[in-house]
Structures are given as C-alpha cells and as structure tokens.
C-alpha cells in the first residue's frame, strides 16, 4: 500500500522528494550560505536541499516568502493563511494545505474554519469576511485566474481595505508558486514514527 497521503489534513505529513536533493557534504559554498548551514546548524530539510539545486533562486525566494507571509501591517496573519490554503486546495498540494491549515488553526485559535474547508471546499459554511477571502483566493488560483470584479467588490464590502486586499493577492499568488514546487517535486507521506 502506498504511503502517499491524498486527502486534506491538518496533520503535517513528511515530504519525500521525487528528485535527489543536494547532499550537504557535496554542497558548494554558495549553497551552504543559502541553506544557512553553520557548524551549530546542520539540520536542513529535504525540501530546502532539493531547492538548493537552483541556489540563485533559493537565496532570493526565502526573504520574499517571509515578507509576504509575516511582514507587519496590512492583512492579519491568519487571513493570509486563508489565501495560502485556498491556492493549495485548488492545486491539491496536500503538504502546503496541511502546514497552513495547522498554522491558521493555531493563530486563529480555531479549527472550525479549516475543518469546514477541508470537508466542504467551496461549500464551506464561513463568515462573510472569510467567505469573500476564500472565494477570491480560490478563483485567483485557477489557470488562467477566474477572479472577478464582483469578488473584488465582495472583499471591499466585507470591510477589507486596499492594503489587506494587496496582501491577500500576494499570499495567494505566493502559494501558486510554493505549490508548484512542493506538489510537483515530491510526495506528502505518512510521518515515520521515531
């Protein structure tokens, strides 16, 4: 039986690469710098070691990723996570969906939103504001984007200001990116118990 996880879950799985990650002992200085490997920090995930194959992108991508998800001001952190979850559900990236649903539940101190989303998708019972956010992010994640002026108006009607809407666009788009690495380059697999 395959150990690959195919259903959405908040239990964060392991990630098994489909390509051979960079071997730490064979990494170049540029790769070690990008991986932030120091004598006291030699733990690097298989995912980051996989991305180290394209070290020039890895170097600039990490600060961009952190800026979009965690910079102060604008949209709240849990709502940015909703954008990430919507994209990950469209692209069926089980790993990203788990990480960000878990994060949403912890920040919002609430599991009902992500329970609803994983159980019912677009038919989930959500607050007006979460509904507007999820629907817009879900539509923006289609190829090509199916986001509409009506969905944009629904965001404003739900009380989002321009800075919050921009943050939602950025976090949703960012997961269009992350999903195409995580979901394409590896499989989400059951955690091996230690």
């Amino acid at each position: 039986m395959s150990d690959v996880i195919r259903k959405f879950t908040r239990n964060v799985p392991d990630w098994r690469p489909r390509v051979e990650p960079v071997k730490l002992e064979e990494a170049s200085q540029e790769q070690l710098d990008a991986l932030k490997v120091t004598p006291s920090n030699t733990k690097v995930s298989a995912y980051v070691l996989t991305l180290a194959h394209d070290v020039e992108t890895l170097k600039v991508r990490s600060p961009l990723f952190n800026g979009i998800m965690y910079d102060k001001g604008g949209m709240s952190r849990d709502e940015r996570e909703l954008g990430a979850i919507a994209a990950s559900m469209v692209n069926h990236c089980i790993y990203c969906a788990a990480v960000h649903a878990d994060r949403h539940a912890k920040i919002a101190k609430d599991t009902t939103v992500t329970d609803e989303l994983f159980a019912k998708g677009l038919k989930a019972d959500l607050s007006t504001r979460d509904r507007a956010i999820f629907d817009f992010a879900h539509a923006l994640s289609q190829t090509p984007s199916e986001a509409t002026p009506e969905q944009m108006s629904a965001l404003r009607d739900a009380g989002l200001d321009e800075a919050e809407i921009l943050d939602l666009i950025l976090s949703t788009a960012l997961f269009g990116w992350a999903n195409r690495l995580m979901h394409v380059l590896g499989d989400p697999v059951r955690k091996v118990s230690a």
Binding site: R61, M152, I169, R180, L181
Partner: peptide, 23 residues
C-alpha cells in the same frame, strides 16, 4: 528543479498582475 522554479515564479507573477488589475 530549475524548470519548476521558472514555472512557479511565473505562476506567482501572473496572479499578482491579475489581482492588481482587478483592484
């Protein structure tokens, strides 16, 4: 991995543009 990064970055950029245009 390089192909995936090209694809992934573009998927981000087109969506930011589509979103800004709607705004």
């Amino acid at each position: 991995v390089r192909l995936c990064e090209i694809n992934a970055f573009m998927s981000y950029q087109v969506r930011v543009l589509a979103g800004l245009r709607l705004m």
